[in-house]
Simulated assay, not measured.
Amino acid sequence: MKEPCVYILASKSYGTLYIGVTSNLIGRLTQHRDGSLPGFTNRYGVRMLVRFEMCEWMEQAILREKQLKRWRRQWKINLIESENPGWIDLAVGLGLPPLPVAERCDGC
């Protein structure tokens, strides 16, 4: 069953952000976390799920992704903090294991 979703990943609190869209959030998160998706998220260690929105149709998810990508960085931060002020990794609540400490804090 496909569940269209737009999601925001972060490298750490207030770190590098990535906005993506998928029809299988758990599957896509697993790919980001295990490094099997080459590119931006792998290069910058962006693996922590900080926000997601489920959509009824994939077209809605794609439009929302494009809208969020046009937003200023501070607007994106405000959106994240409106529902996740502690920047916790929401993937754990979806059943994925916690990220290793070194990956959560981006070298802190």
Rank of each mutant, 00 (worst) to 15 (best):
M1F: 08
Y7I: 10
I8V: 15
I26Q: 01
F40V: 11
E59F: 06
L25W: 09
I77V: 14
Y18Q: 04
S11Y: 00
V92S: 14
L17H: 04
V46R: 07
G27T: 11
L49V: 02
G107Y: 05
P98Y: 04
E83R: 11
Q67H: 15
L17V: 09
P85Q: 02
W75Y: 12
R72F: 08
C55I: 02
I80S: 07
W87S: 10
Y44A: 05
S13F: 02
Y14W: 04
L68C: 12
I88T: 12
K66C: 05
Y44H: 15
L29A: 00
W71F: 13
D106Q: 15
L96G: 02
G39E: 00
I88R: 14
V101H: 14
T30K: 10
R72H: 10
T16I: 13
P38L: 14
R70Y: 02
V92C: 15
V46L: 06
S82F: 11
S13Q: 10
S13H: 04
M48T: 06
A61K: 10
L99N: 02
V21H: 14
Q60F: 02
L29N: 02
A102Y: 13
E59V: 12
G15F: 03
I80C: 08
D106C: 13
W87M: 09
P100T: 08
P38N: 15
N42Q: 08
D106E: 14
V101Q: 15
L63R: 13
V46W: 07
E53I: 05
V46F: 04
E59C: 10
R51F: 14
T30R: 12
R33I: 03
I8K: 11
S11V: 04
I19C: 01
I19W: 00
V21N: 15
H32S: 07
I80P: 09
F52M: 01
L17A: 08
L9E: 11
R28Y: 07
N24G: 06
N42S: 06
E83I: 07
M48Q: 12
I26H: 06
G20L: 10
Q60M: 04
E53C: 00
V21D: 14
L25R: 10
R51D: 13
I77M: 03
C108P: 06
L79T: 05
L90A: 01
R47W: 09
G45D: 13
E56K: 15
V46Q: 07
A91K: 04
S13T: 03
S23N: 08
I62G: 07
R72I: 05
C55Q: 11
R73G: 01
P98C: 08
A10I: 00
R72K: 12
R70S: 14
E65Y: 06
E81P: 02
A91C: 00
H32M: 00
R33F: 07
G95I: 00
R73H: 11
N42K: 12
A91N: 03
R104L: 13
G93F: 08
N78M: 09
G107D: 03
A91I: 00
E83W: 05
L9S: 10
S82P: 10
L90K: 09
W57F: 12
I26W: 05
P85I: 00
K76F: 10
